[in-house]
Structures are given as C-alpha cells and as structure tokens.
Amino acid sequence: MRRCLALLVLMFSLPLHAAQLNLELGDGTHRWDSAELLSHPQARNLDIAQDVAYKRAMHYRAVPLAVLLEGIQPADHLQAVALDGFAAEMPAAPLLQQGPARAWLAIEDPTQPWPALTPGKPSAGPFYLVWTDPQASGIRPEQWPFQIAMIRKLESVEQRFPALLPDAKLPSSDPARQGFALFQQNCLACHRLNGAGDAQFGPDLNLPHNPTEYFQPEFLRQYIRDPQSLRHWPQAKMPGFAQSVLSEQELDALLAYLRHMAKRKP
C-alpha cells in the first residue's frame, strides 16, 4: 500500500510535458513547444479584461501571433484546429495587424495550468488565441479559438468547399449572401453543410435535414440565441449568440442562407 502511495506521489510530482503547436504556413511544418514560446523574446504578461472562454478577467503569458506567422500575407486565409475538432476559419489580415485590436497566442505553462473551463472539463490550453481591444475591430467570439493544436494556411472557404456556396444567380444584395459570410464566421467552426467543411464538432446543418425544415421559425431563433432554453442537457456545447454578437438583422440573413441552402442539397 505504501509503495502504491509513493508511486502516486511520484507521478503527480513529475513536471507535465510541454505541449506542441504545429504551424503549416505553406513552406513546411514548423513546431513550437510551450517552453519555447513561454521564453520567446516577444512573450509578455497579458491581462484580458473580458475573456471569451472563461467569461471573466484572465492573466496570460502570450506572444503576438503575427510574429509566428512568417511569410503570411494579409490576403491569406488561415485555420486554427483545436484538439476537439473545432476548426476556426480566420482571414489573415486581422491576425497580422498591430492594432487597434491585436491577436495574441496565449501559452499555458505546464507547471502552472489554467483553470478548467467548466467543472470536470479541461482548460483552454495548451494554446489559446486571445485579443486585446477586440471591440475596436469587431472581433467575434468565434475568433477566440482555444485548445489549439495547429494553425495552417489554406485556400479560402469558397475555393475549398463549393458545396457551401449560394446560387450564383442570386443578386449581390440578397440576404443569403450576407448570411453565407455570417455562416463562415459563426457556424463553420463547429458544423459542416452539405458534407463540406473541416469541423468535426457538430452535426451537418443541411444533411439529412436543414434546421429550417424541422424547427418552427420562432423556436429556431430562440435556439440560436439560447440553446439551453430549448434543449437542456449537461453535455451541451453549443454557445448562445446574443444580439451583441449576432444582431437581429444578421440573424435574419443567416436564416435566409440556411433556408436557401435547404433547396441546394447534393
């Protein structure tokens, strides 16, 4: 019994392994481990007043993300892939800018782990994209991906997944076109549509059925705003989209895109 206890004490006293971040930026794979990033010359201590993942003020050791994106141009398109399959599509331009909003890669110190996101769940580490002054550039919650394992350069969503595109005959002013842009920003990180997308987190939103086909309109709006108010279970992961994140006009456009795509199944 004493030997078992001694073994457990030894196991829990050993330092945790450094995590690894893979960067695939078009010229091969670059790997950084958390120890290297924590000691990076441009790493600094950062206070985030309104953290999206933790919903409170947080303190991090972080590196400006732009310094890790060597060779990336503002017109490029990036994707952050999380450990759980969340895949955030990210235009490069906001990630490269020096301000007013600025992107930072927060690094979890294995010797001082961050708190769990919720009881019994892991933390937001090992790597988390956070922003200073996010309101200044209209940064949305989906642009704060956490538990990042890889950042890679890809072609745009339109080029990679033509099955997501609305009908080319739609006029440029059609709400479904704005809805497609909002779908990329708010939904594609977790969901596929017509089998298209990289996320492995949530269900396909058109196959076999589109939510506009089986939700009454008022309940679908309620579900998007506050999923737990309609279907409550402890393991639910879908966040609600408040009006500060998705205005009523934007929600109308997103629903217009979903209704349109219900008629464009493969």
Rank of each mutant, 00 (worst) to 15 (best):
P239V: 08
L5N: 10
F201P: 00
P171C: 14
A196Y: 04
G26F: 14
S39A: 15
L5Y: 11
D226F: 02
Q50A: 15
A124Y: 01
P94A: 06
V9A: 15
M11W: 13
A43W: 12
F180W: 13
L154H: 07
F201E: 10
K265V: 12
P115G: 02
K55I: 07
E158Y: 06
G195E: 12
P239Q: 11
S39P: 03
H209L: 14
A189L: 11
V63E: 04
D33F: 10
A116K: 03
D51W: 05
L83K: 07
Q20H: 11
S173M: 07
I151E: 03
S13R: 10
F12E: 12
G240T: 09
L23D: 11
P91A: 05
A163L: 12
P227S: 09
A149C: 00
Q73D: 11
V130Y: 00
K153C: 04
V67N: 05
E155H: 08
G26R: 15
M58T: 15
L7V: 15
P94K: 04
Q249H: 09
L83M: 06
G85K: 07
F183S: 08
Y54G: 08
D167R: 10
I148S: 01
S229K: 10
G179Y: 06
P41D: 15
R152Y: 01
A196V: 13
P175A: 12
V52G: 01
Q200Y: 02
F127E: 03
A101F: 01
L95K: 02
L95W: 00
R3Y: 05
Q185L: 09
V157W: 03
S229I: 08
